[in-house]
């Protein structure tokens, strides 16, 4: 096993976490991680030693996620992830009421965010990249990451609050 592969194995738990946050589904997340590993191993010469391996690998995973997301959208399934989330909500709705704010609630909430807010939130809140690091990873200005993360965080928090008593502003 090369050091590249050893680094990749060591990064798997974090790759799974990021993929879970992006896809909202454990099974889809693991498929995404597997695809990302395969692509990374094929393209490992593109990694520059001395740079951050986690950022490079996250970018591989994130690009794959966006590709498949856009392919689904092109096939007419623009709201596919949201439909999936709502189906799940109906299926286990009773349990959710009892458990209050569960992991599934948050995952479902994340799925309702526009993808650029979701990835900004996932990288800066969950993976704890700084805004500057996330900006470099995504290839956009830090201010853009911040405004996307801010909108994503506020929207997620609103979704997770108990249903208002009718006085929502």
């Amino acid at each position: 096993m090369s050091s590249f592969q050893a680094d990749l194995v060591a990064l798997l738990p974090r790759l799974r976490r990021l993929a879970r946050a992006l896809t909202g589904s454990p099974a889809a997340a693991d498929d995404l991680v597997q695809d990302a590993c395969e692509r990374a191993l094929r393209n490992q010469s593109a990694f520059e030693p001395g740079t951050r391996f986690d950022a490079w690998m996250f970018r591989v995973l994130r690009n794959l996620w966006l590709d498949s997301h856009r392919r689904r959208a092109a096939r007419g399934g623009v709201h596919e992830t949201i439909d999936v989330a709502e189906t799940i909500s109906g299926a286990d709705g009773a349990e959710i009421v009892a458990l209050r704010l569960t992991v599934r609630d948050v995952e479902r909430g994340m799925l309702r965010l526009p993808e650029e807010q979701r990835e900004a939130l996932a990288l800066t809140c969950i993976e704890e990249f700084t805004f500057a690091e996330a900006a470099a990873l995504l290839g956009i200005p830090p201010g853009t990451v911040m405004s996307r993360a801010a909108r994503g965080r506020m929207a997620l928090a609103r979704m997770l609050r108990p249903a208002p008593g009718g006085d929502e502003s």
Partner: peptide, 30 residues
């Protein structure tokens, strides 16, 4: 809202890191 959104996202995924990684992913990475 900014604080709640951050805390909810962090808490929800905190346990993911300690989950065992499926063998097929370890095999894919190696």
């Amino acid at each position: 809202l900014l604080a709640e959104g951050r805390d909810a996202a962090q808490r929800a995924f905190a346990d993911t890191l300690s989950e065992p990684v499926p063998a097929h992913l370890v095999a894919a990475a190696m």
